[in-house]
Amino acid sequence: MSDRMKIFLLLAPAMFIIVVLFFGGLLTGLMRSFNYMPVIGLTDPDLSAYVSVFTDREFYLSFLLTFHIAFTSTVISSILAIGAALLLRRSFVGRGIVNFLFQINLTVPHLVGAIGILYLFSQSGSFARLAAEFNMIQSPSDFPALVFDPYAIGIILQYVWKEVPFIGVIVLANMQSVGEDYESVARSLGASKWQTFRHVLLPLIFPGVLSASVMVFAFTFGAYEIPAILGANFPAALPVLAYRKYTDVDLAARPEAMAMAIVIALLSAVMIYFYLRYSRRRIRG
């Protein structure tokens, strides 16, 4: 058997599944967003779904909110993750246990974290009770709205909770493979601790941080269940809005839902571009 044939046969099942399911789903969504679905008699593609989406104020609010959630969560998580990795890279007594605790929520699904954040930060949650205990608030409504709030603070808190270890583990592995010798060189050439971090360690781990951040951004932009649990009703995060439109009793809203799905897909295509650019660079170093 020739190598080409071998490669083809090895790849065929996986490619079949991914192309049919993933790209088939994407393409069908794209077609339906243009009201084009020959199977059910729609043969004249049009832009009406996009027109109604892009003229709807709720879509813009929803898009901005989702972007805000994804951007803020990603930036905060990345910064804290670098800090956490700096803390954990040293050897210290009890490092094994601390590392385990640091990684524990990696396997805890986002949904559980969202419920936990709800129980902690709602106006009758644990922190509100703590505030009441110290007479800082008189009634639950005095506690600042941190969930179902317009700034999506609860959602961001949840993502920061979940993504700091995720990015942190990647950054930590990055730091370990870079080693400490580059920093030693910089110190002996006269760089201070801060200069060493800024001019040596950060550039060395940056590609890894960036590719992890890209994954986080794309995920936080497209996740449904977290904003569904912790978000305000209006404006809702884009995936929630898309889901609502899709399951609307009015079937005419479905192409609009598809159009929103395509917006999310386009944004993640941009993310993939960044991911490739930087993860490639990391590989070629």
């Binding site: 790849l11 996986a14 995920f219 497209g222």
Partner: peptide, 27 residues
């Protein structure tokens, strides 16, 4: 290209494709 096709589902959120898949799966 094969690597890109395999990488894409790890970054593109499920909501972006599942609506289309739903349409296919109905049929």
């Amino acid at each position: 290209i094969v690597e890109l096709l395999i990488l894409a589902p790890t970054i593109v959120p499920g909501i972006a494709v599942v609506l289309g898949i739903h349409s296919i799966f109905i049929s």
